[in-house]
Nucleic acid binder design. Structure first.
Lengths: 198, 198
DNA sequence: CGTACCATTGATCAGGTTCAATGCTCGTGG
DNA sequence: CCACGAGCATTGAACCTGATCAATGGTACG
């Protein structure tokens, strides 16, 4: 029993003790090394993951064989902690995503089957699943707004404000592709901004 | 009873006759004129809408007071037929979206309260709600991928391939902001492409 | 018939990309 | 423990694409 993680997760999920303990009992602990993969393109994602320690990234490989980062994960806010290819998980289709450890990591997995059983068990858990899907939807929509309305420079500034911790964990190379730009452009944006804010 | 719409909706939702009839009985028919609004920024979205005839758009107003189109709606595929601000609908928060008729429209609304009652009624309907949320999530995620991985020109080409009908309904001015570019750029992209494909 | 809106086009500009080179840091093996 | 190599951030130069400002012509609707 990992008390800090238990407490953290419970406070993030804001659940009563009883259902939370039931959920927690399903979790399977795992550790992996830096650069190891939790999920590779083509596999079916059979888990929902929860970061305990370390950081991971979810990325695609685009048609030019470039890696494009979609999300980063670490033990922080609820939307950061969870990692999965929700599409593959829901539909049992081969994933187009990769999930890889950026440093040595420990995390917990909820296996697909256990999750299914839980959801079929009671409307409480079904509602819980719906809420999770809603959260996933809302964060994807937020990402669309970001990409549609803001220039790369403004996206960088917004990220700096909304999630400054991310800059301590994630290399600029990876952040650049998350922002949809090249590392060179990110470097120049940083320079531009630091000059303007001197 | 609007038989064509009834049949269309049933085939899109792929539901059994009985639950479908229950759902259908909740629908409230409405007509509006071109340029009228179904939802305005600041209001709480209390419906899920289903297009019968005509077309609508969902748009934001960004910080430069420009309209940015987020989605278009018409009687076609399931993801096109549905219109709502799902975020506002789910959370009962004021909407940041506007939904406006691009031409004279007829549509059906599922009122929020009826939807809630339905979802609380049985796990069948709760599951249905979850599936809807999943669809919303998947289409938002697809939009993120589009914006992250493809240039405006490639986005235009992809849209041309995946949804050519949209070009018959929607003006270039509106399509441009959907693609995240100016009308002038769209015009030039079209020119570029038509030359290359002669 | 006139007006308002839209698509197109030209000219200029700004920001991001690409290719290439440099210096730095960190981890590894001799 | 030091030396080397790999990967990363930075910078420069040339380029490309989309943005902006402005003007024109077409079309639909009152």
């Amino acid at each position: 029993m990992n008390a800090p993680f238990y407490d953290k997760l419970q406070s993030l999920l804001q659940m009563e003790k009883e259902p939370f303990t039931e959920l927690y009992s399903l979790l399977q602990y795992q550790e992996i090394k830096r650069n190891d993969f939790v999920l590779k393109e083509g596999e079916i994602c059979k888990f929902i993951g929860l970061v305990d320690n370390g950081s991971l990234r979810t990325f695609y490989i685009n048609e030019n064989a470039e890696e494009v980062n979609f999300l980063f994960h670490f033990n922080q806010k609820i939307e950061d902690i969870v990692f999965t290819d929700y599409e593959s998980f829901l539909l049992s289709t081969p994933s187009k995503l990769n999930i890889q450890a950026l440093e040595n990591c420990s995390f917990y997995l909820i296996p697909h089957q256990d999750w299914q059983n839980l959801c079929n068990k009671s409307s409480y858990w079904q509602m819980f699943a719906t809420k999770m899907t809603e959260k996933a939807y809302l964060s994807a929509k937020k990402r669309v707004e970001d990409l549609l309305y803001y220039s790369p420079e403004n996206r960088y500034i917004k990220l700096l404000q909304s999630n400054p911790q991310i800059f301590q964990k994630i290399s600029q190379r990876h952040l650049a592709s998350y922002l949809g730009i090249t590392p060179q452009s990110l470097s120049r944006i940083r320079k531009r901004i630091s000059i303007n804010y001197l």
